[in-house]
Structure formats: structure tokens, C-alpha cells
Amino acid sequence: MNPLRKQRLYVVLSIFLGTAIAVLLVFQGLSKSINLFYSPSEILKAQIEAGTEIRVGGMVKKGSVYRETNSLKLSFEITDFEEDLVIEYEGILPDLFSEEAGVVLKGTINSKGVFVAHEVLAKHDENYMPPEVAKTLKQKK
């Protein structure tokens, strides 16, 4: 390779490495804030002030969903397998909301330590399968 091209190669490589390192450092510094949601144990540890709006995510605990008969109000517990958090919500749930499935909630913690959500998003996992396969998998369990 002739010297001029070699020099240009080094310039291009240093531009690439420079931006890569800068961007990675930025993301390293921001990594906590880039997370979309906190886990229940992080929230309980952090003693978040009542009324601060946050997002929390976890798995809906089996058998914890309780619906009121005459309204859209419901309560359930989410867990990250360390701590549980009681959630209250009034409104329509996404189709994929179910027990033992992931959810991401937006809302505030009240003085009793209950999380009052005003937005419920269902988290989908990366597994796709036909209904028959899902059925046999469940029977095997």
C-alpha cells in the first residue's frame, strides 16, 4: 500500500475507534438511565418519594390478580423473584397481559407502598410457537 493510502487508512481507523470509544463511554455513564424500567427490589431499596413518576417492570405473580366486579379496577402483584410489589390499576389491559407474563408499568408509589399504575404495557418474550406446541409443552410440565 502506498504511504498516502496507508495514512488515510490510519485516519479512518482512528475516526472509527475514537467515536466508538466516546460513544461506549457515554453509554457506560448513562447505562442506569437507559434502562426503561426498574425492578421491584430496586424500587424498594431506593425509598422513592411518594408521587414521583417511575416505570417498574416484572412478572405478574400467579394467582395474585384480583378484579373488582363492577369496575375496571384491579390489583395484582409483580415480582422479580426477590421482592414483590402490589399494583393497583384502573383501565383496559393489553391483550397479552396474563399471569406469569412480563409487564412494564408507569405510575407512582403511594404512601402505603402500593404502586398506582396509569399505564400497563405487556412485555413479550422472544418465543414463538403454534398453539399445539404450546399445549404439549404445558402438559409436559
Binding site: 389491559l93 393489553p94 412494564v104 404495557l121 405487556a122 413479550h124
Partner: peptide
């Protein structure tokens, strides 16, 4: 929209 319940969310 039908699966998560939102069109857009500012996740990574």
C-alpha cells in the same frame, strides 16, 4: 399497539 399496548416507547 396490539401486543404491548402502545405504538411507541422510548426504550433502547
Amino acid at each position: 399497539k396490539p401486543t404491548w399496548g402502545t405504538w411507541w416507547v422510548w426504550d433502547a
